[in-house]
Simulated scan of single mutants.
Amino acid sequence: MLDQVLPHEAAAVSRIGAISDLWSDLFPLGLLDELRAHPFLAACRNHTISEEALQQFLVQHQYYSRHFTRYLCAMMASLPSTDDVRELSKNLVEETGLDTPGGITHADLYLKSLKLLGVRSGSRPAAPETLKLIDSMYRYCRSEDVLDGLSALCLGAEAIVPIIYGAVIEGFKHFGATPEALHYFVLHVEEDEDHAIVMRKILDRLLAERPYRLSKVQAIAQEIVKDRMEMFDAVLLQGQAS
């Protein structure tokens, strides 16, 4: 449980490319290692990734990530506690840029990164694997069982951001990307585990009431992470074909 792992929330800040031990009990054994070792992420980290594959990733990831606020709203609709809705609304406020005067949405921040990295939005069609990931996220976030959406968003999206974005940042740095161009990714590495911790607290309460449901949480985490790795497979394949 969360209070057994961390003395306070500030201790949960992850280093780029790594996630804290906070999540180890919720993911199936070996799944995070498999994600970290995926050929796309490994190639980003060791600087053997092609620029075309990185550009493919940017386009495919935008198809997925531009739905994020909708995933979140759909999941929040099933939360039984208004206090939980309020806590998760802070994530929504950040995503929409309402947390700072004159702030811009994270979707617009992503578009800015695309432009600075020389990639046009929608310049490649959405891969079937990307559409599968989007469908899986909507299916779970729209479920009447809030455990489904929490598992998909907390474990399949927010908690794994340092592993994915940390590698992507390294890949783009190899090609001379500026800090401004990578701001979107660095920002989410800094913020997303905090969002995941809020969801983790809700998951902990639900699992305290019904511990046997942990197997369902882990199954959903595995499905979403596997779907994401299939999207990475498609990114590499298209990167090689171009």
Rank of each mutant, 00 (worst) to 15 (best):
residue 172 F to M: 03
residue 172 F to Q: 04
residue 173 K to R: 15
residue 173 K to A: 10
residue 174 H to Y: 10
residue 174 H to S: 10
residue 174 H to R: 11
residue 175 F to K: 05
residue 176 G to D: 09
residue 178 T to I: 01
residue 178 T to R: 03
residue 180 E to V: 01
residue 180 E to Q: 06
residue 182 L to M: 12
residue 182 L to D: 11
residue 182 L to Q: 12
residue 183 H to Q: 13
residue 183 H to K: 12
residue 184 Y to I: 07
residue 185 F to N: 14
residue 187 L to C: 07
residue 189 V to K: 14
residue 190 E to K: 08
residue 191 E to Q: 15
residue 192 D to Y: 11
residue 192 D to W: 10
residue 193 E to W: 08
residue 196 A to D: 13
residue 197 I to T: 14
residue 197 I to V: 15
residue 198 V to C: 05
residue 198 V to D: 09
residue 199 M to V: 10
residue 199 M to Q: 15
residue 200 R to T: 06
residue 200 R to L: 11
residue 202 I to T: 03
residue 203 L to K: 00
residue 204 D to Y: 01
residue 205 R to V: 02
residue 206 L to T: 03
residue 207 L to D: 07
residue 209 E to I: 08
residue 211 P to Q: 09
residue 212 Y to Q: 15
residue 213 R to W: 00
residue 214 L to G: 13
residue 215 S to E: 13
residue 215 S to K: 13
residue 216 K to H: 10
residue 216 K to N: 07
residue 217 V to E: 13
residue 218 Q to E: 15
residue 218 Q to R: 15
residue 220 I to C: 10
residue 221 A to K: 04
residue 222 Q to H: 06
residue 223 E to K: 12
residue 223 E to C: 04
residue 224 I to P: 11
residue 225 V to H: 09
residue 225 V to Q: 08
residue 225 V to N: 08
residue 226 K to E: 08
residue 227 D to W: 11
residue 228 R to Y: 12
residue 230 E to D: 14
residue 230 E to H: 09
residue 231 M to Q: 09
residue 231 M to T: 09
residue 231 M to D: 03
residue 232 F to A: 00
residue 232 F to R: 00
residue 232 F to D: 01
residue 232 F to E: 00
residue 235 V to C: 10
residue 235 V to H: 11
residue 236 L to I: 00
residue 237 L to R: 15
residue 239 G to V: 07
residue 239 G to I: 06
residue 239 G to W: 04
residue 240 Q to C: 00
